[in-house]
Design a protein around this nucleic acid. Structure first.
Lengths: 198, 198
DNA sequence: ATAATTATATAGACTGGTCTATATAAATCA
DNA sequence: TGATTTATATAGACCAGTCTATATAATTAT
């Protein structure tokens, strides 16, 4: 037995991956155990509240990954429109790599469990919140008006969420590319001094 | 025995409702039978390919409802920005009425089944396609450039899809309102003669 | 026109399997 | 030694789909 737990993280990461592909209800605990190499007993030891608790941890974990990615992009790009374009390119690449079988790592789970599972709902809200914050900060720094920065940021996150769904259904990157183009344009228009007055 | 079938439509409508709330995998055939009042035998009589075939029918049905709604809005409003605002208000109202427990009637099912279930995927693609067509036509009529009309339309559908997810997680209409505001603005800017040249 | 046959829709019990979670004991670690 | 982690058989609920049977309308044959 290891000095430090080695299975908990694996359970979470594996669950996030499996939930992303087929959703929460279609992914059984035995499948998570088999795919992660974790013992069945450990699963309920670490997550005594059961499967929903695993979902909560998976949403937090996956949401944090996206947040880190967005933060990294924000550090590289001064303008929010450039972040949008870069993020769009990343998303298109990820989905293409999965053969357009994956989507946003937290969406399917949230659609199945929110708002009835409180913990999962809260984890999802926090995840989306941090993503919106990254864009809001960048938009503010680029000159967007305070009243519209958060609205714009939320629109961008929502648009990318929807674009990933469309991309999966259409089995191609088109929707993500379209959203990236139009949201980047909207951001540019919203951060120009004269347009900001509209 | 009735000369004419009475259960098939009920099965489809009920399935669409139940899938929308908790998703496909978490909704059992027995639950659909109980909620629709249809006999179990009838369920497999009408859908010999099984549960996925029901999902396919449910997606087609629900997608058609949204399509009819959008077409109605397009007939009432000349400008696409007004359609966006009206649709946003409708969505916010529907979700509020469900206590923010519902979302888009086809999204959860699609996220669980696309692209592995071909029929469902195809039905979803068709549904999204008709929704995009409504906005594209309106944008074109309002003066948007051909090259961007479909891109804008797709962005709008994607943004509303994402907004419904955020609204459900946040338990409030904020994201839908934000998206409606910003996409309407984007549409206005994209249908003005001088802005269309950007 | 009548009887026989076919087709359709309904009804619900049943099947073999999977699900989540628990209990309890054993193994390992510090 | 006590705390932590693992192992695994089992319980009870639920799963999607199958099966047998019936009622009745429509079709076909005589």
């Amino acid at each position: 037995m290891p000095a430090k737990p080695k299975h908990r993280d694996r359970i979470v990461r594996t669950a996030a991956r499996l939930f992303r592909r087929d959703g929460y209800a279609a992914t059984g605990t035995n499948e998570i155990v088999a795919a992660s190499g974790a013992p069945k007993g450990s699963l309920y030891h670490y997550f005594p509240r059961g499967k929903a608790e695993i979902a909560e941890a998976a949403v937090s974990y996956a949401g944090g990954l996206v947040s880190a990615t967005l933060t990294e992009l924000a550090a590289k790009h001064a303008h929010p429109a450039d972040i949008v374009r870069a993020y769009g390119a990343l998303l298109a690449g990820w989905l293409a790599k999965s053969g357009f079988r994956d989507g946003c790592p937290i969406t399917t789970t949230l659609l199945e469990l929110a708002p009835s599972e409180r913990g999962v709902t809260k984890a999802g809200k926090a995840a989306f919140g941090t993503w919106v914050d990254v864009f809001t900060a960048s938009l503010r720094a680029a000159g967007a008006r305070k009243a519209s920065a958060e609205r714009l940021a939320r629109t961008a996150i929502a648009a990318f969420e929807g674009a990933m769904i469309l991309a999966r259904v259409e089995q191609g990157p088109g929707p993500i590319e379209d959203v990236a183009t139009e949201i980047a344009r909207l951001f540019e228009l919203s951060t120009q001094p004269q347009m900001s007055l509209i």
